[in-house]
């Protein structure tokens, strides 16, 4: 399964570890549900990077009073989605270049929550096919 193509973070970018669910209608890359949003009136989802860029533009082009009347804008502005627009603007307008940690965890050799999560005792496989185990199977195996 493909992993989500989004990079999380603001000062530091790192790969999103979630499995991808759908493709962005604008850039075509695959993302996880956390990093996709459906715009009002659109049927296909946009990734937060693409959405962020269009929202930043809308914000600059439109008269502020017009855009603030939009409930969708409220939802966007006070949501994590806003950070993606803000950061793309921040990276392009200023001199800041984010640190990229890539697949390696930010804290060096240490593991992140995505890694740790799968090691919960509940995630331990007792038997991958406990239910599929058929006592009568393999009778003719030899």
């Amino acid at each position: 399964m493909e992993n989500c193509n989004m990079k999380r973070g603001f000062f530091f970018l790192r790969d999103c570890d979630h499995p991808a669910h759908q493709s962005c209608a604008s850039c075509g890359k695959a993302f996880c549900n956390e990093h996709l949003r459906i715009k009002p009136g659109a049927s296909a989802p946009f990734c937060l990077d693409c959405l962020g860029k269009t929202m930043q533009q809308t914000n600059q082009n439109k008269d502020k009073k017009v855009s603030t009347r939009d409930d969708y804008y409220d939802d966007y502005y006070y949501d994590t989605a806003w950070c993606y627009g803000y950061r793309s603007n921040y990276y392009t307008s200023g001199s800041y270049k984010p640190w990229y940690f890539g697949t390696v965890d930010a804290d060096g050799s240490e593991f992140n929550d995505q890694d740790i999560r799968v090691f919960e005792p509940s995630a331990e496989i007792e038997d991958p096919d406990a239910e599929a185990f058929d006592p009568d199977a393999n009778v003719f195996d030899s």
């Binding site: 000062f11 949501d79 950070c83 992140n112 929550d113």
Partner: peptide, 19 residues
């Protein structure tokens, strides 16, 4: 609250571990 605190929490939250 809405112009500073919310965006700041939002941005810093991008660079903290999930929990």
């Amino acid at each position: 609250l809405r112009e500073f605190v919310v965006p700041m929490v939002n941005l810093i939250g991008q660079d903290t571990a999930a929990e």
